[in-house]
Structures are given as structure tokens and as C-alpha cells.
């Protein structure tokens, strides 16, 4: 069976080593349009390194990265983002002195063509502010728009990360542990948010919270020391004895 339209993301034989450490070992996977593909594995398995190769922060030693069938392996970070890769970082990275609204407006501005505009006050441009307000409302920060990003709670910062990634209307969303460090009442809200987005944008999700993974993922890939141990539908992967031994351990929860 040949699928006529290429997947949103395709990784082909990706390899990356840091000195003697193999971080990515002949990794191939696809994320179809609108699909949520979860990437799981123990600490140090190479999940963040994989993300960084997709965004362009790290160059693979070998292999190819295709976005909608187009080879983007050698493009710089900003060019890939401009092609529709949105990202939330494992460790929150925001513009801490800007308000929440400024943060998202910057994401909108980045998508709105050149920023070599020197005269009009950007904070008065409704074409930047309105979509930014919408994105903040979508992640539940509608009443926190004027708060400096650095003063938001941890959960709110994670939500702001997501709003920034969404504001660029990405084709592919890379989420590196969006629930990391969230309290028991914040995590389910983030899961609900992502669930609401499901189908509208392709997502590659790295997450240690197995409940969230099994709630959200259409497909699951298990990575151990950079190599794929198993890949497929969540329930089948969960049942895989190799996976149970290598990673999932007893029950459905990560051993970390």
C-alpha cells in the first residue's frame, strides 16, 4: 500500500552520537497529518535529542528529516519553524520580562512575514494582539494576558509555551514533556487541552506520564539508548514483552 500524500513528519535512519554516547541510533518514524505520535523511553533514551534534530538545533550525523515530503535536514532552526514546526521545550523557555500577551504576540509576529518594520507600535497592532489573545484564551490564560511571563506559575508557563507554539499555526507540534513538573490538578487540564487539539495538528509527544500518553497517543514508539524497541498502536506496544522488560516495568508507569 502506498500512501499518496506524504506524512507530516518522516525521520529516516537518523543517527547522532555525542563522543562515545549514541543518542540516536538509526531512528525512523513517521507522524501522519493530525496524528498524535508519542515517543517514550527512559531518561537519557534520546528523546530530547530527537526533538532537537527535528527543530534543527542539532545536526544528525546521518539520516534525513522530511516535513510534508520535503527534505529539511540541513535547514536552520528559524527556517524550519517558518515551515510549520512549533515547539514547546522540556525546560520552559519564554521571554520572562514580556507579558504573557507579548510572548504570544511575538509568536504571531514571527509568522506574519518580515519583522523589519520600524515605525508602527507593535503592541497596538490588532493583527498581532487579537490572534495572541485567542491563543491565550484557548489554553486558559485569558485573564492572565498582562502578567509578566516570568511571574506566572509553573503550570501557567507550560500553558503559555503551548499557546506560543499554537499561535504560529504549526503543521507539526513538538511537545517535550508538556506535563513536566505540573501538579496533580494542572496535568489533567493540559491533557484536556491537548485532547481538544487532537486531529487539528500533528503532534510528536514526549511524556513520562503514561496515563497522559495512553489517553492522547494514536501511535507509540519506545526508544531505548537511541534505538526503536517497539512501535505501533499503544495497546499492542503495551503488551509487547520486550517493552515491558526494557521500559514499562511493572504496571503502566515509568520507573523514574
Amino acid at each position: 500500500m502506498v500512501d499518496p500524500s506524504p506524512p507530516t513528519l518522516e525521520l529516516k535512519g537518523l543517527c547522532k552520537a555525542f563522543g562515545g554516547i549514541t543518542a540516536t541510533d538509526n531512528l525512523s518514524l513517521t507522524v501522519a497529518a493530525g496524528e498524535v505520535h508519542a515517543l517514550i523511553g527512559p531518561n537519557g533514551a534520546g528523546k530530547t535529542t530527537t526533538m532537537a534534530q527535528i527543530t534543527g538545533e542539532i545536526r544528525p550525523d546521518a539520516g534525513h528529516i522530511l516535513l510534508d515530503g520535503r527534505d529539511i535536514t540541513t535547514l536552520p532552526v528559524h527556517a524550519r519553524a517558518a515551515l510549520g514546526i512549533g515547539r514547546s521545550f522540556q525546560i520552559t523557555t519564554l521571554f520572562p520580562d514580556f507579558s504573557a500577551l507579548d510572548n504570544v504576540a511575538m509568536a504571531v509576529q514571527a509568522k506574519a512575514g518580515t519583522s523589519f518594520r520600524f515605525w508602527r507600535p507593535a503592541r497596538q497592532e490588532s493583527e498581532l494582539r487579537d490572534p495572541a489573545r485567542d491563543a491565550l484564551a484557548r489554553v486558559g490564560l485569558g485573564d492572565r494576558t498582562e502578567v509578566p511571563a516570568g511571574d506566572l506559575s509553573h503550570g501557567e508557563k507550560r500553558a503559555l509555551e503551548l499557546a506560543m507554539a499554537l499561535a504560529g499555526r504549526p503543521r507539526l507540534l513538538l511537545l517535550d514533556e508538556p506535563m513536566a513538573g505540573m501538579g496533580p490538578e494542572e496535568s489533567p487540564r493540559m491533557v484536556d487541552l491537548l485532547l481538544a487539539l487532537k486531529g487539528s495538528v500533528a503532534m510528536l509527544l514526549v511524556e513520562h506520564d503514561m496515563d497522559a500518553v495512553f489517553t492522547l497517543a494514536d501511535r507509540l514508539t519506545v526508544l531505548v539508548t537511541g534505538a526503536v524497541v517497539a512501535s505501533g498502536e499503544p495497546d499492542r506496544v503495551r503488551a509487547d514483552p520486550d517493552v515491558r522488560r526494557a521500559y514499562l516495568g511493572e504496571g503502566d508507569h515509568a520507573p523514574c
Binding site: E57, A79, F95, A122
Partner: peptide, 17 residues
Amino acid sequence: MVIRAARQNERRLAALG
């Protein structure tokens, strides 16, 4: 705004495109 954002977080700015 881009310049001011660059002072705060260049990496994030690049990730935005």
C-alpha cells in the same frame, strides 16, 4: 520587539521562526 525578545531568549526566538 524582536530585539527586546532577543535579549531575553534567543533560542526561543529562533524556535518561533
